[in-house]
Computed example of a mutant assay.
Amino acid sequence: MKTIAMIPARYAASRFPAKLMQNLAGKTVILRTYESTIATKLFSEVYVVTDSDIIYDEIISHGGKAIMSKKEHKSGSDRIAEAVANVDCDIVVNVQGDEPFTERESLEKVLEVFKGDADKNIDLASLMVEIKDWEEINNPNTVKVIVDQNDFALYFSRSPIPFPRDKSVDSKYFKHKGIYAFRKQALLDFTVLPMQFLEATEKIECIRYLEYGKRIKMVETNVQGIEIDTPEDLERAKRLWK
């Protein structure tokens, strides 16, 4: 089973423009993410896929591998689907460019899902981590996920799910971490499936897979890490890196 990693990397970002080129302990965020992914030693190849000459040059100048997108894309899945269309591989792992704390343990858990799925019933696998802080649970920048009894995703939302109407119920809340592992065909299917209203409303691309009946296996991890969405996140990342 040949596994590769793709890191979609846009230069523009609505909440934090040029965030991937910000300095994190002497290196850019995108370079830190690329090097962390390489360091897991789980992949045959690791590529950064970008629409930006600046990001492309950053990776290439440090001896890395990068692919220029041929066109603008609405999502990271669309961007890496273009890049892998002619690449020989079975599993594609999408590592978000703003995840410099990417580490081996969590990625291994995601990849293990496919080793036990001989009938290929699982289209995607992804990570979730339990959160208990109510500020984070209510933060729309934190995507939450609910799962069934077998840990298949039922829904993703920026709202708190489940809604705690009955405070006596011991509800758990899980944050969706932006790392996906796809069967290559599921990723290619995504690009030809039109966006529906749930995805358009929430602005969460993995909802599209659920709307079209794809099965997403969620794997729990204890590794929080930091996704760099805001300048405040970057400052937290700098402190944690030290």
Rank of each mutant, 00 (worst) to 15 (best):
L154M: 13
E232V: 01
L31S: 12
I55P: 10
K2F: 10
L111T: 03
K177G: 12
P162Q: 09
E103R: 09
H73K: 04
S171P: 00
I7E: 00
Y173S: 13
V143G: 07
A85W: 02
G116Y: 01
Y173F: 15
E220R: 09
S171F: 15
V113T: 05
K172A: 12
P140M: 12
V84G: 12
D151F: 00
K177V: 15
F163S: 10
G225M: 04
P164F: 07
L107C: 10
T102S: 13
S14H: 07
N139K: 07
R215V: 01
E227K: 03
V147W: 01
T37R: 09
Q96T: 04
R104E: 03
K217V: 01
T230H: 10
D119R: 10
Y56P: 10
I161Q: 07
D53G: 06
T40V: 13
K65R: 07
Y56S: 07
K175F: 04
E136D: 12
I80Y: 02
T50R: 00
Y209W: 13
E205S: 14
I59A: 11
F114S: 04
K184Q: 12
I67D: 07
R236M: 13
V110I: 15
H176K: 06
S69H: 03
F114D: 08
H176E: 11
K175M: 15
E108N: 11
T102C: 14
K132G: 11
A237F: 09
A181L: 12
V84I: 15
